[in-house]
């Protein structure tokens, strides 16, 4: 589609001239179908680059709305989006249309769950992970391995970033590396330790590059290692090349535990109180004192022997030692899950 436009040649000339892409590569990019999961720091850079480079069909999924604290690094959004409380996916699609009217960007305002992930992933040539939590990444890993669709992991927190390209059957998947998500509530999130825009931009740029290699069909140059970088301490590392583990529960034994939801958190609306309870999908013990320290400065935090209460961004979270949290003032399960992963961590 994009190559039929006479101005397209000009538009993408710097890219087609690059030896790795060429005119045939650009044609494939134009026909490409990419799913971007998450539209925060990583997702906005990704959508921006995908749109500018002429990827023909982009779907972007995010459950959140634009907030002021996003603008520091989320490159597609503006103050007006935050003031109007526009859903991120919608704001991203609108910005994308202004940048390149010849590509299609479909916004999906939703939480990615075991119930919709296969449907979302199935129609994509590849999936870009731009989520903020490990639960969703394990879910994406399951869906992509099951359907044989490549996905590119990316994460940035503080001054650090990581990326991994997963080609089912060819490279290691997420569960080859770590069969279960690391104990959580212990992991740092952007809300608790912050994040530098540069770490976000570098990781997402690496992801975009991997996506373009896949779209043009150059598998030889794919990154087959876990990349790690720290922009503040000038540390850039590349691990050993990773191959699939035959013992991997996911790509080795084809057990899709996260798709079958045996290990994901559950949400219930609590009648009587405009509130949603998020329960972790597994036994977990939270150190409330520790969590209180991590949340210091994020909002108003108070603790009792039984619970921790956080008021932040107009929401009230009550967190208990067994990892459950009651999010008050909403009956929106997706929002509750989002606040949970932001403040408590998955």
């Amino acid at each position: 589609m994009t190559t039929q436009d006479p101005r397209a040649d000009d538009r993408y000339s710097r890219q087609t001239r690059f030896v790795g892409v060429g005119h045939e590569g650009q044609r494939r990019i134009g026909a490409g179908r990419v799913l971007v999961v998450g539209c925060g720091g990583l997702g906005t850079v990704l959508v921006n680059l995908l749109v500018r480079s002429g990827v023909g069909h982009i779907t972007v999924v995010d459950r959140d709305i634009v907030e002021m604290s996003n603008l520091q690094r989320q490159l597609l959004f503006e103050e007006a989006d935050a003031r109007a409380g526009v859903p991120k996916a919608v704001a991203a699609a609108a910005a994308a249309a202004r940048i390149n009217s010849s590509v299609e960007v479909r916004p999906v305002v939703a939480d990615v769950t075991p119930d919709n992930v296969e449907e979302l992933v199935a129609s994509a040539d590849l999936v870009l992970d731009a989520t903020d939590n490990l639960q969703t990444r394990y879910l994406l890993n399951d869906a992509c391995v099951k359907l044989g669709i490549p996905w590119i992991y990316g994460g940035a927190v503080g001054s650090t970033g990581m990326s991994l390209t997963v080609i089912p059957g060819d490279t290691a998947c997420l569960r080859c590396l770590s069969p279960t998500p690391p104990a959580s509530g212990t992991t740092a999130t952007c809300a608790t330790v912050g994040v530098l825009a540069s770490a976000v931009a570098i990781v997402s740029s690496i992801q975009w590059t991997e996506a373009i290699k896949l779209l043009v069909g150059d598998r030889d140059h794919l990154n087959r290692t876990m990349l790690y970088l720290d922009v503040w301490s000038n540390d850039f590392q590349q691990g050993e090349p990773l191959t699939p583990s035959p013992d991997c529960p996911c790509c080795g034994q084809r057990r899709f535990d996260f798709l079958e939801s045996t290990a994901t958190s559950s949400t219930t609306t609590l009648c009587g109180r405009n509130a949603v309870q998020v329960s972790p999908g597994r036994a977990r013990t939270l150190d409330l004192g520790d969590l209180a320290r991590r949340l210091d400065g994020v909002g108003v935090v108070s603790t009792t022997p039984f619970m921790l209460r956080l008021e932040a961004g107009g929401h009230e979270l009550t967190v208990f030692a067994d990892g459950r949290a009651i999010i008050k003032g909403t009956d929106d399960m997706a929002l509750a899950r989002s606040l949970y992963s932001r403040y408590v961590g998955d």
């Binding site: 609590l270 009587g272 109180r273 509130a275 309870q277 039984f306 619970m307 009550t318 208990f320 030692a321 067994d322 459950r324 009651i326 008050k328």
Partner: peptide, 9 residues
């Protein structure tokens, strides 16, 4: 709701 969660937790 908080009493319920505290009793359980």
């Amino acid at each position: 709701v908080d009493v319920g969660a505290a009793l359980d937790s």
